[in-house]
Nucleic acid binder design. Structure first.
Lengths: 193, 193
DNA sequence: GTCTATAGGGTGATAGAC
DNA sequence: GTCTATCACCCTATAGAC
C-alpha cells in the first residue's frame, strides 16, 4: 500500500511540475531534466512514470480537451435564447478558469499539442467556430459574429492573467461573464465608422 | 553589381524560406539546416547573410515588433484619462488590424507568431502587463485589472476571425473598439458573486 | 560567397545495478 | 522506484580553405 501511495504522489508531482514549467516556458523549451530536477528525481525515474515526453503532454492537455469539447457541444442540444446563452457562456467560463494553468501551454505550443492530439484539434477548431456562430445569435450580421468572437476572446483573458492577481475564482468568473455579456449586448448596434 | 544582385537574391530567398518554415513549424522547431537546405545552400553560408538565428527572426517580425512595442509604450508618456485611453486603445486596434491585413500568413497562425517572438516574448509580456495596468485606470481593483485584460483580448479577436467575414477594416476597427470600450465601461461596477 | 569540418553543448530515451 | 552511466542524435555557431 505504501508503494502505491508513493508512486501516485511522485506521478502527481511530475504532473504538477510539468504544468508549471510548460506554462511558463513552453513545451519545447522545457526539458525533462528540468522537470525531474524540480521534482527531485532523475530523468530515468521520470520515464518510469511517463513513457515519453508526449505522454506527459497528453496527460496534461487531455483532461482539458475533454471538458472544453463538452461545453462547445452544448449549443447542439440547446436552441438559442438569452437564458441558454447565459448558461452556455457560464459553462465556458467555468472550464476556462478550471484549466487556466494549462492555458498557456495550449496557446504557446499549438504545434506540439497538435502533434500529440492530431485530428482532435482540427475538430476543436471547427467546433469552436460553430460555438461562436451560435453565440452571435439568430440572423447575425458580420459585426455580430465579430462581437461573438470578441466575447469569447475576452473570456480567454482568464488564461493570460498573472498569478499575483488578488481575486478568487468566483470573482474572476463573475467579472469575465459580465465582460462577455457586455460585448454581446452590443449586438445589433449600428456600426459608426 | 552582379555580386550585389546575387547576394540580395540569396538573402531574400533565405527570408522567404524562413517565413514559410517558421509559419508552418514554429521558430524553435525550424533549424537553420532546414532553411539552408530549402534555399540550396549550407548553414555556414546562411550565417554569412544573417549573423544569428535571432537576427533572421528580427528581420521577419521586425516591423510588427516595432509597431506593437511603440503602442505598448504609449502609456509611459501619457497620463491616464478617458480621452487618452480612447486614443491608446484606438492605436492598439490599428496595429492589430494593420498587421492582420499586411501579414496574414504570419499573423493568422498564432503559434508561429508566438514562437517567432522567441526571447523577446518575455519583454513583450512585461510591456503588455504595464499596458494593461494603465488601461485598468487609476487605483484599479483586481476586477478592474481583469477587465482591462479582457478588453485587450477582445481586440485580439481580429487575429482569429475567418477570411470569409464580410467586413472591412473600418467596420472591424469600429466594432472591436466598441467592444473593448464596453468591457472597460464595467470598471468600478460591483462584482456580484 | 560558399564550402567542409568541427567545437561545444543540449536533448530524449534506454540498460542495468540496487 | 530510483539511481548512474551512456547512447545516438540534433542544435547553434565558428574557423579556415577555396
Amino acid at each position: 500500500m505504501q508503494h502505491a501511495t508513493s508512486s501516485r504522489d511522485t506521478k502527481a508531482e511530475i504532473h504538477r511540475a510539468a504544468v508549471e514549467l510548460f506554462s511558463t516556458q513552453g513545451y519545447d523549451k522545457t526539458s525533462l531534466r528540468e522537470i525531474a530536477e524540480q521534482v527531485g528525481i532523475t530523468k530515468a525515474s521520470l520515464y518510469y512514470h511517463y513513457s515519453s515526453k508526449q505522454q506527459l503532454l497528453r496527460a496534461i492537455v487531455g483532461t482539458f480537451l475533454d471538458d472544453i469539447f463538452q461545453v462547445l457541444r452544448l449549443p447542439e442540444t440547446l436552441p438559442w435564447s438569452p437564458e441558454t446563452e447565459r448558461e452556455v457562456l457560464g459553462a465556458y467560463v467555468d472550464v476556462i478558469i478550471a484549466h487556466r494553468a494549462t492555458g498557456p501551454t495550449l496557446l504557446r505550443d499549438i504545434a506540439a499539442v497538435l502533434a500529440a492530439f492530431g485530428d482532435d484539434l482540427d475538430e476543436l477548431i471547427a467546433q469552436s467556430r460553430r460555438f461562436q456562430l451560435w453565440l452571435a445569435g439568430p440572423d447575425p450580421t458580420a459585426a455580430d459574429r465579430l462581437r461573438a468572437a470578441a466575447a469569447v476572446e475576452a473570456v480567454g483573458a482568464a488564461m493570460s492573467i498573472e498569478l499575483d492577481l488578488q481575486a478568487g475564482d468566483a470573482e474572476i468568473r463573475a467579472v469575465l461573464l459580465d465582460a462577455a455579456t457586455a460585448v454581446l449586448a452590443r449586438r445589433g448596434s449600428p456600426v459608426v465608422e
